[in-house]
Amino acid sequence: MDDTAVLARFDAQLREHLSPAERSGPVVRVTRELGGWDGVVWSDLTEETADAAIAAQVAHFTGLGRGFEWKTYAHDGPADLGERLRRAGFRAGTPETLMVAETATLSTEAALPPGITLHRATDEAGVRLMMRAHAAAFGTDPAALGAMVRAQLAASPELVDVLVALAGEDGEPVCAARMERYPGTDFAGLWGGGTAPGWRGRGIYRALVAARARIAAAHGVRHLQVDASEDSRPILRRLGFKAIGTTTPYRYGDGDGLDG
């Protein structure tokens, strides 16, 4: 895999020309009305234009009465973009590793541990299971994530795949993960995958990666992309993903983002 070429396609297809999104001068942003969350996904800034562009986005989202996220990548300009965002009142989140794999090279055998079954969430009951798994894994309020996934399932159910790992006869949700497919691009994004503490280390995360890789392969997706945490990065590396960059979220106003 040519890392430089893949990163360039990622920037072009999933950031600068992301659909649905809207352009605001040198910035591309997503809003909840477009089926996403409120945030900036791409920018083309210089030392001369950065501060004004940041101020314009702050004015836009605060005018809507919302906090928002500015999703930065290590190769974004200017070099001090993160510091400029902090000076403007943003809070830096935890950096993650941008990892990509060629779908054709990945295992698609979802070997689940004993007592675990997979449920595909397509309705409100499934979204609630996903939210319970998210809360158990991350310890954060899943309301914003639930609202976003509901909107995605309502608008384009054929493009989002939500899987929930259920434990035992009672079907306790212990892990949830989703895949978003982007028509006209080479990529699908893998999101979530956090596992409840008592169920970690049993291969559930790996199984959910394989299950989504199988779906991606069936749809002809060329590359899978993950924003990997420190916990998931070594697992993904063993599965065949390569690190091609880093990403750091900067949050302005209320809310803590989506935690995947």
Rank of each mutant, 00 (worst) to 15 (best):
G220F: 06
G192Y: 00
L7Y: 14
A56Q: 11
P173N: 07
R66L: 14
L64T: 05
T49E: 00
G192R: 01
P249R: 04
V58A: 07
R206S: 15
T108R: 14
A56I: 03
E172D: 09
P234N: 12
A177H: 09
R214G: 15
A52C: 12
I204V: 11
G146F: 00
D123G: 03
A52G: 14
A133I: 05
L34E: 13
L7M: 12
G203V: 10
R120H: 11
R15T: 06
L163Q: 07
Q57G: 04
G65F: 09
L163N: 02
A104R: 15
D3W: 13
P142H: 03
A243E: 13
E109L: 13
G67K: 08
H134N: 12
A88S: 14
A55E: 06
L224M: 11
T31V: 08
D51E: 12
V41I: 10
L239W: 05
G139E: 06
G35P: 09
G189T: 15
D170N: 14
E96N: 10
V28K: 07
L34A: 12
P249W: 08
Q225C: 12
I235C: 01
D76K: 03
H134V: 09
S232N: 04
K242G: 11
P197L: 05
I204E: 05
Y73N: 04
V30T: 14
A147G: 13
G82W: 00
H119G: 02
E124I: 11
L18C: 15
Y205E: 01
L236W: 05
W42R: 10
W191L: 13
R200V: 03
A21P: 11
E47F: 12
V162L: 11
A217M: 02
T103C: 10
R91T: 14
P114S: 12
H75T: 11
R9D: 13
R91Y: 10
A151N: 13
G184R: 07
W42K: 08
E158W: 06
E158A: 10
A8K: 13
F10S: 02
A50V: 02
E158D: 06
P142Q: 02
R222F: 00
D141W: 09
T62N: 04
T122M: 07
A74I: 08
R66Y: 04
P26W: 02
V160Q: 01
I204D: 04
D3H: 15
V164W: 01
A104Q: 12
G139R: 04
C175D: 02
R233M: 12
T72S: 10
H17Q: 14
P114V: 04
L106W: 07
L118Y: 12
G194M: 02
T122A: 09
L153F: 04
D51Q: 05
G194Y: 00
I54P: 00
D227E: 15
R23N: 05
M1V: 15
Y182N: 05
G67S: 08
A167V: 06
G240R: 06
V149R: 07
R132T: 10
A228L: 06
T97C: 06
R87L: 04
D256Q: 14
V226S: 08
H134R: 09
R214T: 11
G260F: 03
